[in-house]
């Protein structure tokens, strides 16, 4: 910075103080999110021996086993999302449109499980699904079964708990969307002679699609990479994307393969999300398409 007197230098720096104060969050985001992501992508192209660009890591990951694991995770994510929609819709409809008193309290109760730790939620389900747990005890007492059913350590357990943990993610946007619904439309529809079911299918449902869409993706993306639920509830018998990635990075200490597998899973997820996005816009009305 030649040619600047000391006073001008001081002025320059004083002028840049606002900039200096405003950038930490950007630096943080770039340094701890964008750069690591780029590093991971870069790492996946580096050979395991240390140096050199290579596609060998991807070649090793393109096996049927890994494709199967990614497919299983995608399937679990989709099933979770669909079931969450089915389960969340009645509650959100009821809260948003059917009751007036105690709405806030009931909403608080509905959201509260979201704020409890995933660990606590998973552990709670052990008590329900176990051989001596709640479900089996009830079924045995009612003499519906003679031997305890093995609910734990199976795919069913994984799905149930995933739905449980991600339900609040679906409830919140869906409730917000239904809350915003202009009830005069429903009144008008009833006045014009539509039955309750017609009002629902022709007005309420299409108008709630943005909420469904947001909730769907809020559930789909995180549940794909879920780590704790499969690790604890499948009895170690099934591998999901989360467990494989953690195995690569922590257990087997294979960061290159792990990076390649991570990138592949992310591409698969992005493709799935893209497809669903197109599907959603296919099924919505032109007015909503503009809004989207």
């Amino acid at each position: 910075m030649t040619g600047l007197s000391k006073r001008n230098l001081k002025q320059l720096f004083r002028e840049q103080i606002p900039f200096f104060l405003s950038i930490p969050s950007l630096i943080w985001q770039i340094l701890f999110f964008y750069i690591p992501t780029i590093l991971i992508i870069g790492l996946s192209f580096v050979a395991m021996t240390g140096y050199g660009f290579t596609l060998y890591n991807y070649w090793l990951c393109c096996t049927v086993t890994y494709a199967f694991i990614i497919a299983r995770s995608l399937l679990a994510a989709f099933i979770t999302s669909f079931c969450c929609v089915l389960i969340a819709y009645p509650v959100c409809y009821y809260l948003a449109l059917s009751i007036e008193r105690a709405k806030n309290f009931l909403l608080f109760l509905l959201i509260l499980p979201f704020w409890t730790s995933v660990m606590v939620q998973i552990y709670a389900w052990f008590f329900v699904l176990e051989r001596h747990g709640l479900i089996n005890t009830i079924l045995l007492r009612l003499h519906l079964i003679t031997q305890p059913v093995a609910l734990l350590n199976s795919s069913i357990a994984v799905y149930i708990v995933m739905i449980y943990c991600y339900l609040p993610f679906m409830i919140m946007p869906l409730y917000a969307q239904l809350e915003k619904l202009d009830t005069r439309l429903l009144d008008a529809s009833a006045d014009l002679g539509a039955t309750a079911w017609q009002t629902f299918t022709r007005i309420t449902l299409p108008l709630s699609v943005p909420g469904i869409r947001t909730g769907f993706f809020l559930v789909l993306v995180p549940s794909f990479g879920e780590l704790a639920i499969p690790a604890l509830l499948s009895g170690g018998k099934q591998l999901f994307v989360g467990s494989v990635i953690s195995q690569f990075f922590i257990s087997a200490r294979e960061p290159h393969l792990g990076a390649a597998f991570t990138v592949m899973s992310c591409i698969a997820l992005a493709a799935a999300v893209g497809l669903m996005y197109m599907a959603f816009s296919w099924f919505s009305t032109p007015a909503e398409r503009n809004a989207l």
Binding site: M1, Q16, F19
Partner: peptide, 17 residues
């Protein structure tokens, strides 16, 4: 000159971190 001053600002934050 502004660019250099801003780069120094970023570097200062990086050093602190």
């Amino acid at each position: 000159q502004i660019f250099m001053a801003r780069t120094l600002a970023v570097l200062l934050w990086l050093m602190i971190l």
